[in-house]
């Protein structure tokens, strides 16, 4: 079954076509990767799907419903969440609070309950903290559970973003270059984490430059070049596609 369907999607900035007439489908339960050189439009595609940008034209269908032009927080309710290529961490909070904020939609967010700290609220908050600690363990951050966000190294912050996105219990998780800036050992760990997440039933849309990682874990690969689809298919099909080799893999 297709979870997400993109139809004729276009986004222009000034005269630049960052995404041009792009169509593709993501099947539920798979790892779907998007590759392409810098400036190909991968992050723009993520910004369109998650509602940060409104498309110039085209459709984004989540299980048949057009979600284009919906704000990001509405899309989160529908089960979409993402991480960022350029970190978006709240450094005014502790590491675990960054993960806990991911549970926002599942918690009691009544203002009165918060002011007077109703027992049901503290109970829910307590469980949320335990869950967040579990998620931090899952992505390999057990030693930072009590740390402030600004004391974490870069690689740990990348994983903190994944844990935060998981706390929303997404159906579709978009990861924008989760292995960028990581050493090979950390990359292998991320590789394992992504597969674990997929096995738990979350569909994944992945942007990544590390070809080994992409070829290793993707069910399906989409190649973008100048905002347009250059090729699409299974990992081995992409590996042997001459157009892709010329344009990108070199």
């Amino acid at each position: 079954m297709s979870l997400l369907k993109i139809e004729g999607l276009t986004k222009t900035f000034g005269g630049v076509h960052a995404i041009e007439d792009l169509s593709f489908t993501i099947q539920a339960g798979t790892i779907h990767s998007v590759i392409g050189p810098n400036g190909a439009g991968k992050t723009t595609l993520f910004n369109l799907i998650t509602g940060i940008y409104a498309p110039t034209s085209g459709k984004i269908l989540l299980e048949g419903w057009d979600i284009a032009h919906k704000p990001p927080y509405e899309l989160a309710k529908l089960g979409l969440c993402r991480t960022f290529q350029n970190l978006q961490i709240c450094f005014n909070m502790t590491a675990i609070e960054n993960v806990m904020m991911g549970s926002h939609l599942h918690l009691n967010t009544s203002f009165l309950a918060a002011l007077f700290r109703f027992p049901t609220l503290s109970q829910g908050d307590h469980e949320c903290r335990e869950q967040a600690a579990e998620l931090m363990k899952l992505v390999g951050l057990s030693k930072y559970i009590t740390a402030d966000a600004d004391s974490l190294p870069y690689g740990a912050l990348k994983r903190l973003e994944i844990a935060r996105a998981l706390a929303t219990s997404p159906r579709l998780l978009l990861l924008d270059e989760p292995a960028a800036g990581l050493n090979p050992k950390e990359t292998a760990e991320i590789d394992e984490v992504i597969q674990k997440i997929c096995q738990s039933g979350v569909t994944i849309l992945l942007v990544e430059h590390d070809m080994k990682l992409v070829m290793n874990i993707s069910d399906h690969i989409l190649v973008l070049d100048y905002g347009k689809k250059l090729a699409e298919g299974k990992a081995e099909e992409i590996r042997n596609n001459t157009a892709v080799i010329e344009a990108y893999l070199g």
Binding site: P72, Y73, F84, Q88, F91, N98, M101, H104, L105
Partner: peptide, 16 residues
């Protein structure tokens, strides 16, 4: 606090 820390991160986890 998330609004202060990163507005876009707040939005994608469902915070209006």
């Amino acid at each position: 606090r998330a609004v202060h820390g990163s507005e876009v991160a707040a939005q994608v986890v469902g915070i209006d």
